[in-house]
Amino acid sequence: MPVLNGRELRIVGFLCNWCSYGGADTAGVARFDQPTDLRVIRVPCSGRIDPLFIAKAFMNGADGVLVSGCHPRDCHYAEGNYYARRRLEVFKQFISVLGIEPERFEYTWVSASEGQRWQEVVTKFTNQVHTLGPLAPIPEVALSQLAQTTGTDIREEA
């Protein structure tokens, strides 16, 4: 699907059910205006988020990925966000070697009562991704085939 005539970028959110998804709901109930780019995937816990889901999103053409969970110490499952914090931090630092700007990925903590904070996070993150612009998806096909359809071959440029 074209990203709304170039007005939107593709931003994927992974939110834990108990805190951040609730926080996003709270923001909704309070009618806090937000940019429309973000699409939210609900998971039980930030600890459920395998960083490879994020990698997959980038491979498939996401321009930004936002993860949000319960604040440390508040995890509904006691420890999930502690594991998540380590995995996500490692992943954030890792992606620069892949050629993905680390700023395209952020993780944070928003509680169910923090509707305002959620609005702020979404707005700032969306702006941050727009500043970077779109990220070309990794081609689904071989480069030779891609060259036939697009007329440019990255292999020669590189």
């Binding site: 995937i41 499952y77 594991y83």
Partner: peptide, 30 residues
């Protein structure tokens, strides 16, 4: 919680209703 699912490298333990395949399908859908 699904912490186990994201810990197991080969995806041998899956959280029902939040399986790798389901989350991947959601990613691919958007």
């Amino acid at each position: 919680c699904g912490i186990c699912s994201s810990t197991c490298p080969q995806g041998a333990i899956q959280l029902r209703h939040f399986t790798d395949n389901q989350i991947l399908a959601e990613v691919e859908a958007i």
